[in-house]
């Protein structure tokens, strides 16, 4: 498979007063054609900066990158015709209607909605009932769909989506990912960033980013497969006290709150779970539940961060 996006040793620093902020430190990765590639990392990891470099809005300090076989520095004009970019912040004209926004961006790319209707059809039918409504008056999920339509209107080869599901409800998020899957089937390479770890498993491959560095790149299965330690999920009536007691215990390696449970690893991989359970019962914990679980991307992320 040939590569759609290639990033080689990219560095980017920002000057903020007298201090230099290193937003990207030696980033390298490849994305194959037709892949759904995820950049996973918390806010401030450098995802947006990386997107801005790849979409030719920003110039890297060091290193180079290629998009669709074109170099981002020299061939930026050609790249702009071939990529679709959906910024993290809603960046369409709020005072124009849905239809006007679409035809405006279509015209800027020298095309029209009719010409590429097949591509945006699935998305457009969902927002079509509101086509005379101003973009500013749409709901969050609808706004994202409109933005995606606008990014797709010129039939790009590579699609960059910067946190498309941030601030969108759970149902819309799921719908959005289904749309991305469908687009992928049409042969579009998609690079998507998200701060939500649970979305990582929906990508073909993910890069885990933290503080301007890539900690690991692999398929979601590959990443969770690297988590060798047994992982336990525990819960009790008093979750706060549970975490406090676990963290105080010297047999416990890590303990993180994960929704309804705490995820725990032991220092010794062969540690029996019964002594721990008895210890917690002695401490007065009620409704205790302990079970062994498979690690998620988030567990791996936490583990990588601590390394």
């Amino acid at each position: 498979m040939s590569t759609a996006v290639k990033v080689e040793h990219v560095f980017k620093t920002f000057q903020s007063g007298k201090t230099q902020i290193e937003a990207l430190k030696d980033i390298s990765f490849d994305v194959s054609k037709g892949e759904l590639f995820g950049l996973i990392g918390p806010d401030g990891a450098g995802k947006t900066t990386l997107f801005r470099i790849l979409t030719t809005l920003m110039i890297a300090n060091k290193g180079n990158a290629w998009v669709d076989g074109l170099e981002v520095m020299g061939d930026y004009k050609e790249i702009r015709k071939r990529v679709g970019y959906m910024p993290g912040r809603f960046s369409l004209y709020q005072d124009l209607t849905v239809e006007e926004n679409l035809s405006f961006f279509a015209t800027l790319f020298n095309t029209s909605l009719e010409e590429n209707y097949d591509l945006v059809k699935d998305i457009y039918v969902q927002i079509e009932p509101f086509k005379t409504r101003r973009a500013g008056a749409l709901s969050g999920g609808m706004k994202q769909k409109l933005a995606l339509s606008c990014a797709l209107i010129h039939s790009p080869n590579v699609l960059f989506l910067d946190e498309p599901t941030t601030g969108v409800d759970a149902v819309s998020r799921q719908e959005f990912w289904e749309l991305l899957r469908k687009l992928q089937l049409q042969g579009i390479t998609i690079v998507v960033s998200t701060p939500y770890m649970d979305e990582a498993s929906l990508c073909d491959r993910v890069a885990l980013m933290q503080d301007g560095k890539i900690m690991d790149i692999d398929s979601p299965k590959g990443i969770t497969g690297k988590f060798k330690k047994p992982l336990w999920a525990m819960s009790s009536a008093d979750m706060y006290k549970l975490m406090h007691d676990l963290r105080a215990d010297e047999r416990i390696d890590t303990c993180y709150p994960f929704g309804q449970h705490h995820h725990i690893t032991f220092k010794d991989d062969h540690q029996e779970v019964n002594p721990i359970e008895n210890f917690l019962i002695d401490k007065g914990h009620k409704g205790l539940s302990i079970e062994k679980i498979e690690p998620t991307i988030e567990d791996c992320f936490m583990e990588l961060m601590n390394r």
Binding site: R80, L108, F109
Partner: peptide, 9 residues
């Protein structure tokens, strides 16, 4: 909105 304009040709 200028972001979206800037990525167009």
């Amino acid at each position: 909105t200028i972001e979206q304009i800037n990525v167009t040709p």
